[in-house]
Design a binder for these strands. Structure first.
Length: 296
DNA sequence: GATATTTGACCTCA
DNA sequence: TGAGGTCAAATATC
């Protein structure tokens, strides 16, 4: 519940910031910007409502840190019912050809499964960790079993062996938005592994490598993100300029114990200009953002 | 050789 | 019995 409260508070904080920004621009000629801000406000409110609604309808059996499960003699948990619920979900648009989004932790992939009923089986095209050939061959040879399937990859903390860290995560494409990856985290890190990169360091490297998000031609307009990533917790809440927001949205948010990265784009999306991206954005949260490391 | 990934098999649950 | 989650041997990469 604490996690939910944090999420809702964060959303409300964002709404407050957006509303303030909207008020400041009411008398300006930038009507597109106002529309965008209004849309963001509505989105955040809907999200907060959804968060509260889902927690009411499906109270989690687990939130936050819990001791690692006691494995059986074969190293498996005895009762799946006792497994902790996902402590957080991250949605991230990523068409990078270099793997799943890096969240600052080191993960070891330990499995992959085809998931029935998913809308977007093309996930295998975007995440090289997924075996495209195997999936497609299975789809051809067993059309009934593999029809409309996508792959879900399973990762666990690299420090499970050395430190017994129970954290795991699952990565698959969102059914609701093909441009968004759903990354579900289970358990919390008990390892002492620090985040690999700071936000400023990541952005600095992105700027240097000129690998900021851009449209991927031919793959349903999926935004490409750099293979490097953001460390949590960090926060960026804001809206790109009106010209950009007319065709796409992007937001980065994080909270204690949970985080979310979202991005979406339609087919009209043009290359994102990072200067524009941060033009009307603002940093919130508890991690300092070193703008000097990002802007020349 | 160490480490990471792939993949078929196995286990649990509904 | 099928689906989801995990194991562990085989394989790939550095």
């Amino acid at each position: 519940m604490e996690n939910t409260t944090t999420l809702v508070i964060a959303e409300l904080t964002q709404v407050h910031g957006l509303a303030s920004k909207l008020a400041a621009h009411l008398d300006s000629p930038h009507i597109d910007l106002c529309r965008t801000l209004a849309r963001d406000i509505i989105f955040s409110i809907e999200k907060a409502i959804h968060t509260v609604t889902s927690i009411t309808e499906n109270p989690p059996a687990y939130v936050g840190s819990q001791p690692a499960e006691i494995p059986t003699e074969r190293g498996r948990t005895n009762c799946r019912k006792m497994l902790p619920q996902y402590s957080s979900h991250v949605s991230m648009s990523s068409g990078t050809a270099q793997g799943t989004p890096n969240d600052g932790r080191t993960w070891r992939k330990y499995g992959q499964k085809s998931i029935l009923g998913a809308k977007y089986p093309r996930l295998v095209l975007l995440l090289p960790a997924f075996n495209l050939q195997a999936c497609s061959e299975k789809a051809l040879t067993s059309p009934k079993r593999y029809r409309q399937q996508t792959c879900r990859a399973y990762y666990r903390c690299s420090h499970r062996k050395t430190q017994g860290c129970p954290a795991t995560k699952q990565v698959q494409r969102s059914d609701e938005n093909p441009a968004v990856f759903d990354i579900a985290y289970r358990g919390t890190h008990t390892c002492s592994n620090p985040p690999q990169q700071t936000t400023a360091a990541v952005m600095q490297s992105c700027r240097q490598e000129n690998i900021w998000p851009q449209k991927t031609e031919g793959i349903n307009s999926v935004l490409q993100y750099p293979s490097s990533s953001f460390s949590f917790p960090f926060a960026y809440v804001g809206s790109p300029s009106s010209s950009f927001m007319s065709s796409s949205t992007l937001g980065l948010k994080s909270h204690h114990g949970s985080a979310e990265i979202t991005a979406a784009a339609n087919d009209d999306t043009k290359f994102m200009d990072l200067g524009i991206l941060f033009e009307v954005g603002e940093m919130v949260g508890d991690v300092p953002f070193d703008a000097s490391a990002f802007f020349i």
